[in-house]
Design a protein around this nucleic acid. Structure first.
Lengths: 196, 196
DNA sequence: GAGGGCGAGTAGACACTGTCTACGTGCTCC
DNA sequence: GGAGCACGTAGACAGTGTCTACTCGCCCTC
């Protein structure tokens, strides 16, 4: 099945995914995406009434990829006999790895101004992903009063690390490009020191 | 000194600050700012060669306000006899408070795509602010090997909380609009349980 | 005091954007 | 075989950021 055979809807999303990976969010102009998909600027309108809905579809693809990446990393950790802490380490690394590998997509996924309208639906896609986090945190800290709160706090930490690295502040402050010590510190703080 | 007396440079920045507070980042069009300042769309060019430089000047104002807010909160905490932990609590609350009070400005300040070019200079303004954080963390954990790393990890957590709240994910996950438990959890995780 | 120079702001052009609308065009189905 | 229609094209429109004349008013100099 060639690129031309797929329906335009899928081709437009694929073009957006490719453009955002190479040129960042600012490369996601409506006409630019249409050009990249080889159609006129009016064509997308048939499938996406507005530019934002097209962007939302691209972001939805990103959420799907993120979910897959996390599931894959978790499965790998489970395969090596990792416990709850090891799995959380792997998930956290995968989250930051996704943000580093495709920073444009990561930015798009959390640019609520571009996704307004579809935001609620996209937010919901992160919920199941979040549940496995909560389960692991609960397993690690059986006595915790509210594992959801603890998990949300941890996730915020990961998210902040991803954002501040993208912005360049971390390098400026710690003097190093390496987020790994920061990630380790965050995980240790929230989950207790890792067993070695 | 009326608004008309100030030089246009300051008036444009003031207009931008006002617009971003009421309409968010998307209200910061070059022509929109010029209109709001009562001049033609070509006028800003004399002071800001490009739109982005004007946005950077507005963001710089935001960083100044944030610095002031944090310094004020810290001074207040010191005045009530707070120790290192109490001061960090106050600083963290002020950081999140700033982000909640002026979310548009907060977003602009970390939109590297809009500030490209002036980004490095703006990033530098956060450094002294960060140093007081590091000093307090070092005071709290004298045995820590690298307080800068621990502080950067904590700051990332605060930043992530601010971002995810703005995006709306936290409410969806914890079921509550209230970030306070999350902030408490983050501070406890990084700094140890608060002394009561 | 008259005149030249210049800083400051205006106004229009330009290429570009997202949206809207009228128009082909080729396929399907009765 | 012809009607209907899903699909994509092409142009118009208002808006954007940037660039380039152009004008106006003030200061400095002779």
């Amino acid at each position: 099945m060639t690129d031309q055979d797929r329906d335009l809807r899928a081709r437009l999303v694929a073009a957006g995914v490719e453009l955002v990976a190479t040129g960042g969010v600012q490369a996601l102009g409506l006409r630019e995406i249409a050009r990249h998909a080889g159609v006129s600027h009016g064509a997308p309108r048939r499938y996406f009434p507005t530019h934002r809905e097209l962007l939302a579809a691209i972001a939805r693809d990103g959420f799907g990829r993120l979910t897959d990446a996390l599931a894959g990393a978790d499965a790998l950790a489970v395969g090596t006999g990792a416990g709850a802490r090891g799995r959380l380490d792997a998930l956290a690394r995968a989250y930051l790895g996704f943000a580093a590998a495709d920073p444009g997509m990561f930015e798009l996924m959390f640019r609520h101004d571009l996704l307004e309208g579809s935001g609620a639906e996209l937010r919901r896609t992160t919920v199941p992903l979040f549940r496995t986090f909560v389960g692991l945190v609960a397993e690690l800290h059986p006595g915790s009063d509210d594992p959801a709160v603890a998990t949300a706090a941890l996730w915020s930490n990961l998210h902040g690390l991803a954002q501040l690295r993208a912005w360049g502040s971390l390098r400026l402050i710690t003097g190093s490009e390496d987020v790994d010590p920061l990630l380790r510190a965050a995980l240790d703080a929230h989950l207790g020191p890792a067993a070695r």
